[in-house]
């Protein structure tokens, strides 16, 4: 089998059966013409090296075969912006679910490791990527989907009134806030979902002085979760959402400051725990740091409110 026939055969393998023979026949005729032209130009017959060079110039058989077929793409240009948006939100949801699962395992005394969290997150993210890409491959290539267009119902009136980059609320901030507050509610309401055996084996438990704070803190965390869901949908700061944020952070600041004066946890000394004797001290400093963070967020929100007022006045 000579080089030309091997090349034609390699191209033909990549073609659908209905078009294979016809294209292969024509391609062979074109290649032989090319070789004939080369021989006339150089005044000598072609050598195997000349044939090889000409075939290389034509291109790899896969590329040549692809040029005879209708163009295909993984995700079309029209769908690509929506595709990247879906991937970003998908990744946020995957990470959120992994964090919440990790939190539940950690609090429930089950197997919870950072390696497990990372492995689970990577596995879920890859699965999400494959599913989303598969859907958009279908939308980009199926004839039935040709009439569907992304963003076909958008209206300029629905665009957010955002003038500055700081007005955009970052997705990672909202995810972090949602996960943290969800974890807090789980921790506060642990008797509701932990089994009696797990409860008995816990090295720490809530002290009586924490009890009056459970309900307001749970309500605050629940409000923060609902506000996070709002920010997922409307991810930009307006004067009203900044006021809500200030009020939320102010309440958080008061609760954290109040809790800092209380002994929050009771240590079960029958179960050895390396940091048992220092846990309330650690919690005290965590709460003081939380107060500082809340005050920073309040100050930042007030600054942004002033900026928005100045923009409006101008």
């Amino acid at each position: 089998m000579n080089l030309i026939d091997r090349y034609i055969s390699a191209v033909a393998q990549q073609l659908p059966a209905s078009r294979r023979d016809d294209i292969a026949r024509e391609l062979k005729a074109n290649i032989l013409d090319r070789l004939e032209g080369f021989a006339e130009e150089h005044g000598r017959p072609t050598t195997p090296a000349d044939e090889s060079a000409i075939l290389r110039e034509l291109g790899h058989p896969r590329q040549v075969a692809a040029s005879y077929l209708p163009p295909r793409q993984l995700v079309s240009a029209a769908w690509f912006p929506f595709y990247t948006q879906c991937l970003i939100y998908g990744l946020a949801i995957v990470l959120l679910i992994q964090l919440l699962g990790f939190g539940v395992s950690l609090l429930g005394g089950g197997n919870a490791s950072i390696g497990g969290l990372l492995g689970g997150a990577i596995h879920s993210a890859l699965l999400m990527f494959a599913c989303v890409t598969g859907v958009f491959y279908g939308l980009s290539n199926l004839p039935e989907a040709a009439k569907i267009s992304p963003y076909c119902n958008w209206k300029p009136e629905q665009l957010p009134p955002v003038q500055h980059p700081w007005q955009r609320i970052k997705l990672e901030e909202t995810v972090n806030e949602f996960a943290s507050n969800f974890f807090l509610i789980l921790a506060l309401q642990y008797p509701l979902w932990m089994s009696a055996e797990t409860l008995a084996s816990l090295p720490v438990s809530a002290s009586p002085s924490l009890q009056p704070w459970v309900l307001p803190l749970s309500a605050w965390a629940l409000f923060a979760i609902v506000f996070s869901l709002w920010k997922f949908r409307y991810n930009y700061w307006t004067p009203s959402t900044l006021w809500i944020s200030i009020a939320q952070n102010f309440c958080g600041c008061l609760i954290a400051a109040g809790l800092a004066n209380e002994k929050i946890l009771v240590i079960n000394h029958s179960i050895p725990l390396p940091v048992a004797t220092h846990i309330n001290d650690i919690l005290y400093w965590v709460l003081i740091a939380s107060v500082c963070v809340f005050l920073f967020w309040i100050a930042r929100s007030i600054y942004w409110l002033k900026l928005l007022r100045n923009i409006k006045a101008a």
């Binding site: 024509e26 074109n30 034509l58």
Partner: peptide, 21 residues
């Protein structure tokens, strides 16, 4: 195919075979 390419080249339009055919 080949003669078409030659004609186009003589008219100043150089197009490679991978695109033309």
């Amino acid at each position: 195919g080949y003669s078409l390419r030659k004609q186009l080249q003589e008219a100043g339009i150089d197009i490679d075979e991978g695109t033309l055919y």
